[in-house]
Design a protein around this nucleic acid. Structure first.
Lengths: 186, 186
DNA sequence: GTTTTATATGTAAGTATTGACATATGGTTC
DNA sequence: GAACCATATGTCAATACTTACATATAAAAC
């Protein structure tokens, strides 16, 4: 099973959904640390169905194109539960901006600074979005007595990482800008 | 040009090196945010040579297998300098551990906690390594009067990101462990 | 003496992901 | 009336990366 397969099972374990629904959730940074396009999602769903981890229900619609609702099966839940506690490798980080920072000694500081201003802005925006999301998630979780076996806890755990990540990334960008500004003024 | 091509040019802009040397630098987390295997590096070097961005010098050796030393050309330096200040997309983060955290509501806390202890350990170790490296790099940079056009600055900038990243990741793992411990004791 | 390790360079098959192509419905905007 | 957008599902080619295969030298470990 691919990681994307587990991503899809992880989402379907919370609620049934169509391929389109899943693609919407995975298309960008919402509350979650995985991204995928529909072109990868549809074939993966077909594989999950073949393997018996999900079942599909065809839903005809009149005002919109027909859709297919996917539901996780008992077999799917079993493999998902086993996978969650299985050891996992540390992900490889490949960040082109850090690579550019590594090569920054070749550039004019004034030309390079815009690069880091743009990324500082982006990560600050995303941080604010995650923080708003976190506030709402914490409220939802509280209504369920802050149980660790609630899906809300999973969302909070991942958004917590998103907040830390964006905070740190934005701080690094600001540090880079400082260094560059100092070099420009000298 | 691929990103790996720029990685290799970025390294060769500092000093000539063989494919093996480059593979050593890129094989794991040393001072840098890019990883690649020799199986990807050798073909990429051949492409860079074809494009005229590097030249190769065959060096026969008696006590070891012969090697090929690659040097960046003026054309290579030109494209590298242009690339450094060019805008770049925000990298997509795909982290299986965060995904597991998202699905953690499906697992027994006692079974899941080992996962986060292992990763907390790993990121703490890597952080210490980066911090030792940083101390040495800062000394080297100081001897050159902390010039921003020194390669040392590039190394420091990337290690700075590595330190922030590992610090934050380790902190998140510890937060996850806390949550899980609390759930176990309840 | 045999195995292992470091040096040194490659190829080939398979997987993961992206970007483009492809089609169809119905509502909204211009 | 035409163009565009959201919904909805798919395929295909290309790229990026990993894993395994493949070979050769010489020193060091056992």
């Amino acid at each position: 099973m691919t990681t994307l397969g587990h991503v899809l099972l992880g989402l379907l374990a919370r609620a049934p959904a169509s391929g389109y629904d899943l693609a919407q959730k995975l298309k960008g940074p919402v509350d979650f640390f995985w991204q995928a396009r529909h072109s990868q999602i549809y074939p993966e769903l077909a594989r999950l169905e073949q393997d018996g981890y999900v079942v599909v229900q065809h839903v005809p619609q009149t005002e919109r194109p027909d859709k297919k609702i996917y539901r996780i099966t008992d077999a799917g839940t079993t493999v998902l539960k086993a996978w969650v506690i299985a050891p996992v490798e540390v992900p490889v980080v490949r960040d082109e901006l850090v690579l550019k920072a590594y090569c920054l000694w070749l550039a004019h500081p004034a030309a390079a600074i815009e690069l880091f201003r743009a990324h500082a802005h982006h990560h600050t925006e995303l941080l604010a979005r995650y923080q708003r999301n976190q506030g709402w998630l914490l409220e939802q979780w509280a209504t369920e007595g802050r149980r660790i076996d609630s899906p809300w806890f999973g969302s909070i755990a991942s958004i917590q990482r998103g907040i830390g990540y964006e905070q740190e990334y934005a701080a690094w960008c600001r540090w880079m800008i400082e260094q560059l500004e100092q070099a420009i003024s000298d």
